[in-house]
């Protein structure tokens, strides 16, 4: 069994994003980047499946500029067997959208005869939460989004426990399938130095969108990116009556 895991390079979670002066996006230059935390969880799950013997090969894939290779090397250091970098640079990268990425993954899943494609449920930069679902639809494979637990049942099925609004839902998917990782699926390991050094010898291939025959032109146009409004100072109310009155008159709450 072969697993493909999507690992997106995003602005580090600890960085406070700043909007560019021309309002076309956020500042990424000179800003620390790292692997999307949810993708890291998906990758950890893929590696654990391999360690359990259920999976033979884990392939990490990242689409974007050359710097994505560092994200892929991190994936290799954590335990992926090989990596594929899909180079997308400059303006094409700035407008790279989930549909295009899903098409890339569809092609890579087919070309590499993958049985399972894993993603983080969303990336913390654009919060789109679309790539896994779109990939599943394009491949016409079953999907298990927001997985909190994942196990391989025999050789032909996976069991996925999903976190849904009302609680947990357990579903069984026929392989091949697409699964996206929620927060509690697996706690990612640290890439140890010995494994970082070993990862240097693991293959990292390049496949351009043209080679894959995928059209990555954007379908959505971003009009403007704005900072969220600055939070105004609060006020103190004298007593409960004062609070109730404010809630009624200013917050529009009806009791």
């Amino acid at each position: 069994m072969r697993v493909i895991v999507g690992v997106k390079r995003v602005v580090d979670f600890a960085i406070k994003a700043r909007v560019k002066a021309d309002k076309t996006g956020v500042v990424t230059e000179g800003v620390k980047h790292s692997m999307n935390p949810f993708d890291e969880i998906a990758l950890e799950q893929g590696i654990r499946l391999k360690e359990s013997g259920a999976v033979k090969e884990v392939i990490a894939v990242s689409c974007g500029p050359t710097a994505c290779q560092e994200t892929l090397r991190t994936a290799l250091a954590m335990g992926a067997d090989r990596a594929i970098h899909v180079p997308v640079e400059g303006a094409a990268y700035e407008t790279l959208q989930p549909l295009a990425v899903a098409k890339i993954f569809k092609k890579l899943a087919e070309d590499n005869q993958a049985n399972l494609v894993l993603f983080g449920k969303q990336a913390i930069d654009d919060d789109a939460n679309q790539t896994a679902q779109l990939t599943s639809a394009l491949l016409n494979w079953p999907q298990g989004a927001f997985a909190a637990k994942l196990s391989v049942e025999g050789g032909s099925k996976v069991k996925v426990v999903r976190e849904i609004d009302g609680g947990l839902e357990t579903i069984e998917l026929n392989l091949p399938a697409v699964v996206s990782a929620d927060l509690r699926l697996a706690e990612p390991r640290y890439a140890s130095l010995a494994n970082i050094m070993k990862a240097k010898k693991k293959p990292l291939d390049k496949k351009t969108p043209e080679e894959l025959g995928v059209d990555i032109k954007p379908r959505i146009k971003t009009l403007s990116v704005e900072e969220p409004p600055v939070r105004k100072a609060g006020i103190k109310v004298e007593n409960v009556d004062g609070l109730l009155q404010k809630l009624r008159t200013e917050a529009g709450v009806t009791f």
Partner: peptide, 28 residues
Amino acid sequence: KQQAYVSPFDERPQLTDEHRIFRDAARR
């Protein structure tokens, strides 16, 4: 507005990708 500590010497020329990946893991 706490931000992740970014070293003023992130561009130390001696450091390779392997060093940077290790630094991220160590920092975490």
